[in-house]
């Protein structure tokens, strides 16, 4: 016996979730680009695109609810839907963090750059990589990969520490940098939160595969 319509709906929510993740990854990458290149148009574009991220999240949520109401999913099907429902919330919030970075890029666009950006783009790169790997773990139903990804959160935390200390030094040495440095700590904070939400996705992957909730990495922050 097959359940063609049900299978199609299940595949659809997973495809859409992956599409949502791609939108968020692009937003993170562009946020850093807008910051680095002081690109006001790009920053505005990211802010406008966040509405699409939110909309997609609600569309996926709607489809999940419809499947629950009409198909009575059970076992791994049910776990898939529950995992998707949680993951899309994390993705949407990551999109908000990317939007936050874009807003800071706008604030800093008219100011002289405080310093060359090295660790912040590095944080964004690690967080983005973690995000895509977590979705790979989801697609492949690979709980071990999900667990390994969470170890990378420590790297992001360490970079965050480094950025924070460096910016404090700037502020202590020259109070005129306080505003810009504070804005940059917000950028770093947004990236730290993004990586932290990736660990939530990884926890959902473990739940999806093994049927139990396991706290994978308690972030320093």
């Amino acid at each position: 016996m097959t359940r063609t319509a049900f299978e199609r709906q299940l595949a659809e929510i997973q495809q859409e979730m992956l599409a949502l993740a791609s939108m968020v990854e692009v937003a993170i990458e562009r946020g850093i680009q807008a910051l680095r290149e002081r690109d006001v148009d790009l920053a505005h574009q990211i802010i406008a695109d966040d509405a699409k991220v939110n909309q997609k999240r609600y569309e996926i949520e709607d489809t999940c609810l419809e499947i629950i109401a009409t198909q009575q999913p059970l076992a791994s099907d049910l776990r898939t839907i529950v995992a998707v429902l949680y993951i899309i919330v994390d993705l949407e919030r990551m999109g908000d963090h990317a939007e936050g970075i874009a807003k800071i890029a706008l604030m800093l666009a008219d100011e002289p750059p405080l310093k060359p950006y090295i660790d912040i783009p590095r944080m964004a790169e690690v967080a983005g990589r973690m995000l895509m790997s977590s979705l790979e773990a989801f697609k492949e139903r690979d709980a071990d990969l999900a667990r390994r990804i969470c170890d990378q959160d420590d790297e992001v935390d360490a970079l965050y520490d480094q950025v924070y200390r460096e910016l404090l030094t700037y502020m202590a040495n020259d109070p005129r940098t306080i505003e810009r440095a504070t804005h940059l700590t917000w950028v770093a904070h947004n990236l730290e939160r993004i990586a932290d939400r990736v660990t939530n996705i990884c926890e959902r992957v473990v739940y999806l595969v093994e049927g139990r909730i396991e706290e994978l990495n308690v972030s320093k922050y």
Partner: peptide
């Protein structure tokens, strides 16, 4: 119903 141990149970309750 949420995490059956047997593949055959999974296939049955999910309608496969």
């Amino acid at each position: 119903f949420t995490n059956p141990k047997e593949k055959r149970t999974e296939d049955y309750i999910t309608g496969r």
